[in-house]
Design a protein around this nucleic acid. Sequence first.
DNA 1: GTTAGGG
DNA 2: CCCTAAC
Length: 681
Amino acid sequence: MVLKNRQEYGFRGYQIPAIPRGPRSLRRRAMFKKPADDGEICAFELLATVAGKLLQESESSTSSNAAELKEQIKIHNDGIKKEHLEGSVIRSECLDQGSCIESVQVPDFPVIDRNSKSTVQEVPHPESVYVHEHAAAVPSSEFLVKGKCSVKSEKHRSNDAPGSILSKSNGTLCEGKLYDSDLEKEPRRQTEVVKKQRGPLDMAKASPLKNPTEFYVNNTNMLINSENSVDLPLYRAQDLDAPFPGYRSGVKIVNRDDDENYFRSNVLNTKARAFRPQSRMGYRRMRKLQTSRYLKAYPKLKDYELSNISRGARAFYHKRKTVYAQERCQYDLQAKRRRLFGHRSDQEASSESISSFRDKALRGNKTTGVSSSGSGHKASVQSKDPRVNFRIKSFKVPELYIEVPETATIGSLKRTVMDAVTSILGGGIRVGVVLQGKKVKDDNRTLQQSGISQNEDLESLGFTLEPSFVEACSPSAQKGSPLLLPYDANQELSRTPAPILDSGFSKSIDQTPLTKLDNHVESNHETAPSVTDVSTDGTATDSKALVAIPPINAEALAMVPMSQKTKRSDLSQRRIRRPFSVSEVEALVEAVETLGTGRWRDVKMRAFDDANHRTYVDLKDKWKTLVHTASIAPQQRRGEPVPQELLDRVLAAHAYWSQHQSKHGKHPQMEPFKLAGEVGV
DNA sequence: GTTAGGG
DNA sequence: CCCTAAC
């Protein structure tokens, strides 16, 4: 990491929350304190954070604890630092990166008045929210997002922050994330984030021809224009210069609480509104059929058809034309199912989309001289900024139940499906990333860290479209009482049986009579013509909104390529391995020496508070392995060798704290051991 | 949410 | 590093 010029971020002092004891959750603390993630923290920000904490704690405690906090060794993402608090100046000394010393003047911290009646507060330093730099090549010349987002409920943040948006910026994967400091206490704060313009980088220069990037991830980005329409521009990277009609660089995203103004009631009829979940995110009306418009305008885009929705045709309740949009918590259901069936993947039909492209990509790499050799391990480390090619071939839309009479026409069916999809998307969607069957929830992780590199096997990479409102997974909805909406029965009839549409993605899960489906699985994308047509067929563009469907609030709207070979469940991806450095070990040892072995949360806060990727469980585990390592012969040790001196301290501390329970009282009795030193072995 | 311990 | 029982 670089010590960045704090001016660049408009640093005016770090916001210290007026939280008496701080959020209990370390994760939430981290969330608040670190809008950015590993390796992205600016030194001044870190230091100021520490300073704030120190001041805060020294203020609140008149005890001897304050003295302890005057100096600390802390692990940061960029290394280990020793930090002193000298008056109002934080002096930070890098212990393992040369001898750089940085001092930060700690200003008077602006403190949010928590008692304020106002429900809207500006984040004092919006610039502190910034776009990841290494999520992509960062050829970005500008950041487009001016986001306004209100977050009302903690649940909204459960996975991806609801304010999380993806915006396209000249081929850069940008992500704007809005964090709220304490949603429980200030549930209605409204934040505004303005991304600052960063150093302009010519894309051509930034990504020379040697490895031209087609950053297809961007293609899934949801661009929301000022009319609160959700466009789903589907374009190739080649079109980045002129992505699509109507593309504007100054994307503005508005997501207001009082979104009624933005809600066009002509979309949903009154009945639908009654079913409308109480989405905090508000509603945006997707500009109808924009997708198909773009598809028409850009024939290349056919790869991105909505497909695989069609299922076996069966009409259960025929007389009236009815549309069901049934919402589920697929997350749980699938997880449960996978457990039951031993991780048997149920993404049968979703494999080839990326793989074929990957072959191409690999071939392309060869031509460009970029090695994709071997099994890909370690290759990601060598190159500086390797590019990854993504291709999104199709989206699946699971859990979409539509019923029409047998006598309905194909055209009406198309419109029905289109409206259903439109209604779903109208609630706002976001993009999820699935890797090896697991959702990658950590938005701050880089592609490389997540194992998405050009040399990795991308067969198991997929993308999902998810409704923005995930939390409203009501039990009633799960119970399978489908939301039944009267349909404008003024339709032509035909002899064609109308299919019930379903992705088959979760066809065997929690089937209600309505959702009883044929057993066959669609084997390829070609067998799903009807929905494909909806998104491409021009006839559909003429239709008005015929049905209203409450937006689905299930976990995933769509699912794309996941390898058949995927074994892991999609609950979460396994974190990447991050071996402890010697510096980290040293900090850990130091902390354990003083705190003992039973207070890993404290250890975490003391020495690793700013290393987000180290949980207290990690520290505990590391200590466990350290003890083990110290107990075995040096020849048997693996990995980066830990200095014997440290291992000795490990053993000493372990021996000491084995006898002296660390939770002896309130007072962290650190002195005894420190004085005892290694004698206690 | 933390801790402790097995996997 | 994951999982989870136990608290």
